[in-house]
Write a protein that binds this DNA or RNA. Structure first.
Lengths: 152, 152
DNA sequence: GTTTCATGTAACTTTAAATAGTACGTGAAA
DNA sequence: TTTCACGTACTATTTAAAGTTACATGAAAC
């Protein structure tokens, strides 16, 4: 399967949206994410339902952040896009009759469960405000302003 | 992409191999794994190079365990099959010019790194002997012997 | 020695899951 | 009433694992 980059992509466009202030269209966000506008709408749909972003149709419409960046964590965003699978590996058979396979699956699942739990805790510790702050630190390190940072 | 079940599959056949004692052919192992003999050979090839299993051609040939089960961990097996990707998610762009995306990637990568490290530690704590013991405990719980446990 | 069995491997096809794209409907502003 | 922008159903493409075919190699049986 393809690698899932929805979380990476949506966090990226959320921060751009926050920097912008004014509504951004799916087309603009798609350019930043180097993808299609429909993909953007699809992913942001979940965030809208969760109340993190707002969308307007028609002239001057587009997407805006609907909540303080400090009140949104990466975990919230992960949940909002539908909690996609985290682990690339799985069991060959989910409910095996073979007792050998049951023993193997149990051991693997233990590890996967712990790793997923840790990952979600980590995600819950990072707010979008923290990401924005990191972005501004990176700008400062290069003696740039947000205006000068054209998307590439 | 399809979900990666190589680790699950190879652990399964390794334990069957150990239970058997005598060499098992790729065909036999493939039946247990419900897959193709070539797939089995492909995966076991890595284990052979790592010295965990031995293979013989010709009459009476097949695969045997080449080391004490207590001396092989799930981590060893994971390494031997080529350390496949553990996380299902990745960054949209690996080396982005966009500083926003750099900030996002850095945060995500932190989490992924920690989760992968934990998973590998867990894998390193489980030996094949422990898995075999768990299998026998499951047999005992059902009042069966290994002989009676026909593969299903 | 030649037949049979089994691994070793390259090349190709199929499949599952994410991503990309097309088409068209809806509602708001110009 | 035209244009813009989201909403969404449907289809196509892409990626990596899994499956398959074909054939070479080497060992044991006869």
């Amino acid at each position: 399967m393809k690698r899932d980059s929805r979380l990476s992509g949506v966090l990226h466009v959320l921060l751009h949206m926050a920097e912008q202030g004014t509504p951004m269209t799916s087309e603009q966000l798609a350019r930043a994410m180097q993808t299609n506008a429909v993909v953007v709408r699809r992913i942001l749909g979940g965030l809208r339902e969760a109340g993190f972003v707002h969308s307007e149709k028609g002239h001057g419409g587009g997407w805006t952040i609907a909540r303080d960046l400090a009140a949104i964590t990466m975990r919230d965003v992960y949940d909002a896009i539908g909690r996609p699978r985290l682990m690339a590996m799985g069991n060959r058979t989910e409910a095996p009759g073979c007792l050998v396979e049951q023993a193997v699956n149990a051991a693997l699942d233990d590890g996967f469960r712990d790793a997923e739990a840790l990952l979600l805790v980590r995600f819950g510790e990072v707010t979008l405000a923290a990401l924005a702050a990191d972005f501004h630190a990176r700008l400062a390190a290069r003696n740039l302003t947000a205006q000068e940072h054209i998307h590439g």
